[in-house]
């Protein structure tokens, strides 16, 4: 479904030149969920943004459904690939009601029967029609993220790019959103690419994942391997350990370089 070969993303030139992603390759089958894990500055979000055209592709190849992507992306691309952002407080237009947020993609692509599709989209993400004419400030963080998911799904894409979709939410709300994403994938046959710093979240949602550090792929592994603790890489091990919570008599973890 999605194939990334030697992806390279460079921002700026001269002294300001930053190689955010260096030679990252991975392949995602249709209907699979693939995770990108790493800490800030690892380039995991940049990979996602390069796929959908929010960041430049400096080198390498991105293929969706067997076709190399064009720059700028075609309208057909946006019907296949959609994205959900990290912060539900920033990803909804503050002056638009839920209704206008959801009808915008339909209007852009000239879709018919907006009315019924908006109601259906709301139903899919577990919200009733009473939410249709609310403004974002009348919604909780979890409800906003549901609207953002509804907006991404309303064009019936095949691939959903998820950029830390739950890290701005409370733990109990995170569980609801993760269940929703799990459920939607099964029902609609979606392909996910999930970016997160939280190993447990990635392991919960994805079958396979790529650990990234400083813009490079460190290790590709499976959720099952992660659960059994069979990570070969030292950095992956330190991430696993850190995700278990604070340990008092533990040895020093691998020094995270202070940039």
């Amino acid at each position: 479904m999605l194939d990334i070969q030697n992806l390279k993303v460079v921002f700026g030139t001269g002294r300001l030149r930053v190689e955010a992603v260096k030679n990252v390759s991975f392949h995602v089958e249709q209907g699979a969920a693939y995770g990108l894990v790493g800490e800030s500055g690892s380039g995991k979000s940049t990979v996602l943004r390069a796929i959908c055209g929010l960041a430049p592709i400096t080198g390498g190849r991105v293929t969706v459904n067997g076709e190399a992507v064009t720059s700028p992306r075609s309208k057909a691309f946006y019907r296949t690939v959609q994205m959900v952002f990290q912060d539900p407080y920033a990803s909804l237009h503050p002056r638009h009601t839920v209704d206008s947020t959801l009808s915008e993609p339909l209007a852009i692509h000239g879709e018919k029967d907006a009315e019924s599709r908006i109601l259906q989209a709301l139903r899919e993400v577990g919200l009733g029609p009473s939410f249709r004419f609310r403004y974002p400030h009348q919604l909780s963080g979890g409800q906003r993220q549901r609207i953002a998911i509804a907006r991404a799904l309303i064009l019936r894409p095949k691939v959903l790019l998820l950029d830390e979709p739950t890290s701005a939410l409370d733990a109990s709300v995170q569980a609801e959103i993760l269940n929703l994403l799990d459920d939607l994938r099964r029902r609609l046959g979606l392909t996910y690419i999930l970016v997160s710093h939280d190993l447990a979240v990635v392991a919960h949602l994805c079958e396979r994942l790529l650990v990234m550090q400083h813009g490079e792929a460190v290790e590709e592994t499976t959720a099952a391997a992660l659960r059994s603790g069979a990570a070969s890489n030292e950095y992956t091990q330190s991430l696993i350990q850190a995700s278990q919570g604070f340990t008092r008599a533990a040895p020093q973890p691998a020094q995270a370089p202070a940039a």
């Binding site: 994205m83 952002f85 915008e104």
Partner: peptide, 13 residues
């Protein structure tokens, strides 16, 4: 550079 503008961009606007 806000996310909601990125979101409409991604809808192909």
């Amino acid at each position: 550079n806000s996310d909601f503008i990125a979101a409409v961009k991604l809808q192909g606007a």
